[in-house]
Amino acid sequence: MRKITYRDALREALLEEMQRDKTVFLLGEDIGRYWQGAFKVTKGLAEKFGEERVLDTPISESAIIGTAVGAAITGMRPVAEIMFGDLVTLAMDQIANQAAKIHYMFGGQSRVPLVIRTPFGGGVNIAAHHSQSLEAWFMHVPGLLVAVPSMPSDAKGLLKAAIRNDNPVVFCEHKLLYPIEGLVPEGEYTLPFGAAEVKREGKDVTIVATMFMVHEALKAAEALEKDGLSVEVVDPRTLVPLDKKVIIDSVRKTGRLVVVSEDCKTAGVTAEIAALVAEEAIDYLDAPIKRLATPDAPIPFSPPLEKHLIPDEKSIIQIVKKIV
């Protein structure tokens, strides 16, 4: 094991899969040798693999994904980058109506091995068009898989698995995660979709959190331990498929559930997980389920405004204390 950043872990995954399989190629805006990706995930890859396999595209999100779909159904494994998660809006027909439905609508004749990488999340003061967390939208479109890695090791293993998967995968990254370091195994490995991980064991309360919120939840758990509270933190790692068993097993153990996510509260990630536990595990609960999400508001620019909306260590501690 060695410590590398989330960004470098993603890059390693791309590099290894491009070396392993020549049908894997990348396309997106400014991912090539001039800019190397808005968040530098693709740094050095165009030099290594050539501009034909690391394609700089025009600013045409719909055609980026549509082109990737066309390539995927004719023998390639494209990895498309949408520079900011907010811009998936421009490609939604290709994602939700084409990529997600081709396998089903054509009776299983074709597969769509496509990965769409995109960074979601706020915290860097770039306002309403560059800060949203839209991952729940994709949970609502059957045919898509949704990955939400929080740690460098998860990012690498899941991205490699996503590239090898025969279904379209919306691979959600988070801007604040790119510089975060973590232990990543040396050498080859992949991680399965639909396998949550307990990031910290505890016995008094379960926090289910995703992406950057996993880190905030871990900090909150650390702080709460000083108050004598044992907090378990569960990271689903993929939202589709969702590992119900690990979540329910944890709730069975602790009897208390807080769900934390950075997307909006209404009809969001926290709603789905809370509903799952209410539906399938309510008898294990000793307290009402609590949800902590971004309120139903656009992300504002000014730092105190943005900070007020997005969950963090402090607001997680507060909400946990309400049910213990």
Binding site: R53, S62, A63, I65, G66, G70, A72, I73, T74, P78
Partner: peptide, 28 residues
């Protein structure tokens, strides 16, 4: 797919990028 019919999309205009993608795949 056995005779190269990559499918009909009922969203008007949605097939155009898919054909471009098939062309990209051919080139690659």
């Amino acid at each position: 797919f056995s005779v190269g019919v990559l499918g009909a999309t009922a969203v008007v205009g949605a097939g155009i990028p898919i054909a471009t993608g098939a062309g990209l795949s051919i080139k690659l």
